[in-house]
């Protein structure tokens, strides 16, 4: 299988879906001529033309809401929001409109709207360009949330999002765009939502890692293997729906669990996962559920400060040692 970057995988998924279905199009700030500020849609304007790869004004509410309106009358739009932080500018259209349209209409509305958005800290981007806002939306029934960590997952999950009939927030981590990995070439390769991936098998401790933390958890697992600690790494891949069965099965095997995400710790995705485990897997646990996330402060600019606030491989390693030696 050929290798692609995460960025190329996202582009391939979009391009394949646009070739497959004329009702799919892409719009967002700088997605056409610029090729996306992250370069994800480079070359797509040339292939699909300005009708289907649309630069928009800097108007997040209009971008998301127009995507919703187009979806309600039969299109399958992909809209790009440049930074997760900017989702708040279009927040009403996500939370009060797109997420609720199907339910409020008695199930009649179909909302095949994919909102691609970047997440995470790219380095010294400071407090308004670095957040991981996934869990803000986990409290809103009606929206699905994908957090791919690998190029193959990015491709497979994005194609599922575009082909579906529900609004999806698709979080692409900025620091994963250059990551490479094997990606199936099959134009019908899709991955189901609600199916976690066992990224690495182990027997002593489970690390449930989200988005970029998968990479850091794998690095931690390598280090810990040298100490004789066997780490299992599970990537939920989608937060809504959440594959709790796979998480619980892993915890049943290892009896120890750490949840790692780059989002702020307080009420981050780990809070929900920890609660699920407390309710449904407490009998398997030999110790506390440990969460690792960004410290509860706005993300700072200075690299020294930012590094201190963000969770890293060393935080995972320290937590595993603590759990295993209890």
């Amino acid at each position: 299988m050929r290798e692609l970057t995460y960025s190329e995988a996202v582009r391939e998924a979009m391009s394949e879906e646009m070739r497959r279905d004329p009702s799919t199009f892409l719009m967002g700030e700088d997605v056409a001529v610029f090729g996306g500020v992250w370069g994800v849609s480079e070359g797509m304007l040339a292939e699909f033309g300005e009708e289907r790869v649309r630069d928009t004004p800097i108007s997040e509410a209009a971008i998301i809401g127009a995507g919703l309106g187009a979806a309600l009358v039969g299109m399958r739009p992909i809209v790009e929001i440049m930074f997760g932080d900017f989702l708040m500018c279009g927040g009403d259209q996500i939370v009060n409109q797109a997420a609720k349209a199907r339910f409020m209409s008695g199930g009649k509305a179909h909302v095949p709207l994919t909102i691609r958005v970047t997440t995470g800290a790219p380095g010294s981007a400071a407090a308004q360009h670095s957040q991981s806002p996934e869990s803000w939306f986990m409290n809103v029934p009606g929206i699905k949330i994908a957090v791919p960590a690998t190029p193959a997952d990015a491709k497979g999950l994005l194609k599922t999002a575009v082909r579906g009939a529900d609004p999806v927030l698709f979080f692409e981590h900025k620091m994963l765009y250059g990551e490479t990995g094997s990606v199936p070439e099959d134009a019908d390769f899709t991955l189901p939502f609600g199916q976690a991936s066992v990224v690495r098998e182990g027997s002593d401790v489970t690390i449930i890692a989200i988005s970029i933390m998968v990479r850091k958890a794998l690095a931690a697992a390598d280090l810990l293997a040298g100490e004789g600690i066997s780490v299992e790494v599970i990537d939920p891949r989608t937060l809504v729906p959440l594959d709790k069965e796979t998480l619980i099965q892993s915890v049943a095997k290892t009896s120890r669990v750490i949840i790692a995400h780059e989002a702020h710790l307080r009420s981050g995705p780990g809070a929900e996962i920890a609660a699920v485990l407390a309710e449904e897997a407490v009998e398997y646990l030999d110790g506390p559920v440990i969460r690792i996330g960004a410290k509860n402060v706005p993300l700072p600019y200075s690299p020294v400060l930012e590094n201190f606030v963000l969770p890293g491989t060393e935080d995972i390693v320290a937590a595993v040692r603590l759990l295993v030696r209890r």
Partner: peptide
């Protein structure tokens, strides 16, 4: 004001 972008999006679909 919730309906403005939705109407614009439906109109975009018709135009496309």
């Amino acid at each position: 004001g919730g309906g403005f972008p939705i109407a614009a999006g439906a109109a975009l679909a018709f135009q496309m």
